[in-house]
Amino acid sequence: MDAKLHSKIMRNLPQHSPPKDMLNKTLYVQLELHQVLEVDQKNGFWFARASFFINYYSQSAIWDPSQYNDIQYLTLKQDEIWSSDLVIANAIDVRYIANPDVFLFHNGRVTLKSSLVAVKLACSFDVTHFPFDQQTCYFKIGSAFSTQFLYNIVSESSEAVLDWYTENDQWELMRPVKLHVQRTIVDANANLGADDFVAEVRYEKAVAFYIVLICPNLLLYFLSSLVFALPVESGDKLSFISTILLAEVVTVSTLNDVLPESSLGFPIIAYFVIAIIIHLSLLCFGSVIGKLNTYCLKI
């Protein structure tokens, strides 16, 4: 690094506040989504791998490369110049961060963060149409302290970059991933607000997941109708329908392991399973009555 250039930058860019010549007092944010690693509807979170970039432009960061040994950019530590307090607002756990340094380019572009993260994010799931549900979760970047009087937030594009996205085997990403900035009013009297950068990530379950959950219930339901083909005096009639009822109870425990304890809606499939259990219980009850009636007639 050229010592003269480093000294110039450190002299021009403040360490504890945004530069006064920051272009439009604006931070530009961009997101690249690489993969949805996991969606845990049971516990209310999703796990993703992504890169996000926070930039601003300043006249104080411009230099002529020809005067500084043809240096096109500089790398500084985050504590050497002012760095925004933007964080992933709805993160539960950030597993990995890369490139924590600040990058300065000769055209005045300052990249405060260029981070690759594997992050666990909170999400509210609506399982009303489970397992045919489409979920919408959010990747939010914002500040709890800074307001628009210090800086604004602008999305560099209307959609997240998906050039390096890897599909999940259980969840299919619904493209595009929309980006927007959402302003939260902090003090209505002073017209004071704070901006959040929001990525709207929508996805749906893979087709194979439907077969695993729906087909066993449908199969048991249709098998239960075969009980009418067995003669009333046969002892197999009651044992057959009892076995079907127990098998359905096992599928209920499987659903209980998958469905969240609380959600924005009660799943329709749960009504379907309840109806099947009531239907099988009535058949079982009818088989018992029929068996008792046959026994009484013999006496």
Rank of each mutant, 00 (worst) to 15 (best):
S263W: 00
C215V: 14
Q59N: 13
C123A: 07
I9M: 00
Y28P: 00
F45S: 10
T166S: 11
F52Q: 01
N168M: 14
K205C: 05
V39R: 07
E156I: 05
S143M: 07
G142S: 07
A208W: 10
F145E: 10
A122C: 03
V127A: 00
G286R: 05
I88F: 01
S60D: 10
L219N: 06
S58V: 11
E172M: 13
V227E: 09
S239F: 10
E204Q: 08
V273P: 12
Y203K: 00
Y210I: 15
K113I: 05
V288I: 10
L37D: 12
P176Q: 05
W82I: 09
G286A: 09
S115D: 09
Q59K: 08
D126C: 03
A91K: 03
H279N: 13
W63Y: 03
Y271K: 14
P14K: 06
A61R: 03
M174H: 10
I9Y: 02
K291Y: 08
K20H: 12
S66P: 13
H6N: 06
V181L: 09
N24E: 14
I81P: 01
A98Y: 06
D195P: 09
I244R: 01
L213W: 08
F45C: 09
F240H: 04
F266V: 15
S83Y: 04
I299N: 15
E32M: 02
L5M: 00
A190M: 07
L162R: 01
S58A: 14
V127I: 04
V87G: 02
F272S: 04
N99T: 11
E80K: 02
D101F: 08
L179C: 03
K113F: 07
F103A: 15
D133Y: 03
S114T: 13
A89R: 02
Y203R: 02
F105L: 15
I88D: 01
F139R: 08
S124M: 04
Q67H: 03
L282M: 13
S155A: 06
L292S: 11
E261W: 12
M22H: 06
Y96L: 06
D257E: 11
G193Q: 14
L5P: 01
A190D: 04
R175F: 00
V29H: 03
D64W: 09
M10K: 07
L292P: 14
V117S: 02
P100R: 12
Y73S: 11
N189K: 11
Q78C: 13
D133H: 06
C296K: 14
W46Y: 10
L297C: 09
G108P: 01
R202D: 03
T251C: 15
S124R: 02
K298R: 13
T75Q: 08
N12Q: 09
D64L: 08
V181N: 11
A275V: 05
L246R: 15
L5H: 01
I299E: 08
N152Y: 15
V201R: 03
I81E: 00
D163F: 01
I153F: 07
G235N: 11
C123Q: 05
N217W: 12
S234Y: 01
S262K: 00
A247M: 12
I241N: 09
Q135N: 10
D101N: 12
C137T: 08
P176V: 03
